[in-house]
């Protein structure tokens, strides 16, 4: 049986999906990147290989996320796609008539507007990461609450508390202030969820026509407090798909399937790459005053990829 591999290397998590030809998720892995994407990819692929049933053959591989080029050259990807397209494709697979995708990940938040299955508009947070997963993680750690319980606590809130949510630093000050005043923790957490949603809709979602069905995905979609806050703010139901955390990887796998259907072959190097030594190196180019910071990745002793140049000088590998 043929299957397709999708890898989404993000700031916070590295997700790996094996998708059947029919579009079912055979394996879905969610791992923490922990600042070491190469190791995350290798250990993820090892786990993916172990989960593989006999007779399943990888017929194509796609990568996405901020580490998509790195992952792409490591595995020999057939398609390397940006997160926006990958998330839109995955949302369309699960909810074919989806019109709005809200996606909040570790450090990115995006909104994707679709009509008739085609992306017609999108936006991504630009200057500020307030209201993304990393901030929620931080606050959960500060309050010593497991992030998984954050949402449930918010739902226990009985009294609204308004938290200033434009900037995470000020949001934290405001939360501390509200705590010192004696507000209950669930109320504060709920206030934070509402502040994040407000910030998201006023920044990323500004000027966008948000129509149902609305799909909410990304790591933060696991937080039922945020989902509830979105439903209150939008006045419409918000769907959180079962595989909300790994939607990017699902989209990448689906895009690989589409690509391979056209070319008929895959560049996938095989699971053997989990055993190969990889290392990266960076240096400052001295070719011109731009002093680009070039990063390169080695497989054994061979350079397989380079990034960061503003001119074609380092394109030849």
């Amino acid at each position: 049986m043929k299957a397709y591999l999708g890898i989404d290397v993000g700031s916070v998590s590295t997700n790996i999906v094996i998708l059947s030809e029919a579009g079912e998720v055979l394996t879905g892995l969610y791992l923490r990147t922990q600042g070491r994407p190469i190791e995350a990819i290798q250990s993820g692929l090892k786990a993916a290989r172990e989960s593989l049933k006999p007779g399943v053959e990888i017929a194509g591989v796609g990568t996405t996320g901020s580490g998509r080029y790195l992952a792409g050259v490591m595995v020999g990807a057939d398609v390397i796609k940006n997160e926006i397209t990958a998330h839109a494709v995955a949302a369309c697979m699960l909810v074919p008539d989806v019109k709005t995708v809200l996606e909040i990940g570790g450090q990115d938040s995006k909104i994707i507007i679709l009509r008739n299955g085609v992306v017609i508009d999108f936006a991504m947070n630009t200057v500020c990461a307030a209201g993304t997963g990393s901030f929620l993680d931080q606050q959960a750690a500060r309050l010593n609450i497991p992030i998984e319980q954050f949402g449930e606590l918010a739902l226990q809130s009985t009294n609204p508390v308004r938290i200033a949510g434009r900037c995470t630093v000020f949001a934290e000050s405001d939360m501390i202030h509200k705590q010192q005043m004696g507000h209950a923790l669930p109320d504060i957490i709920n206030g934070l969820c509402e502040a994040l949603v407000r910030n998201y809709l006023n920044n990323v979602g500004k000027g966008k026509e948000i129509l149902p069905p609305v799909v909410f995905q990304g790591g933060v979609a696991a937080n039922i407090g945020i989902k509830a806050a979105f439903e209150r703010a939008l006045g419409m139901p918000v769907l959180v798909p079962e595989h909300h955390k790994i939607m990017g990887a699902i989209g990448a796998a689906q895009l690989a399937a589409e690509k391979v259907a056209g070319t008929g072959q895959t560049g996938f190097k095989g699971f053997g790459i989990t055993e190969l030594p990889y290392r990266t190196r960076s240096f400052e180019c001295d070719g011109c005053p731009n002093a680009c910071e070039i990063a390169e990745i080695y497989e054994k002793d061979r350079v397989i990829g380079r990034w960061g140049a503003r001119c074609p000088r380092w394109d030849v590998i």
Binding site: S66, K81, N82, E83, I84, T85, V118, V119, I120, D121, F122, M124
Partner: peptide, 15 residues
Amino acid sequence: MTTRLEAFVDLMRRK
């Protein structure tokens, strides 16, 4: 910028 440009090009192609 690259991510947004790639997504924008995909958007236009699919449209």
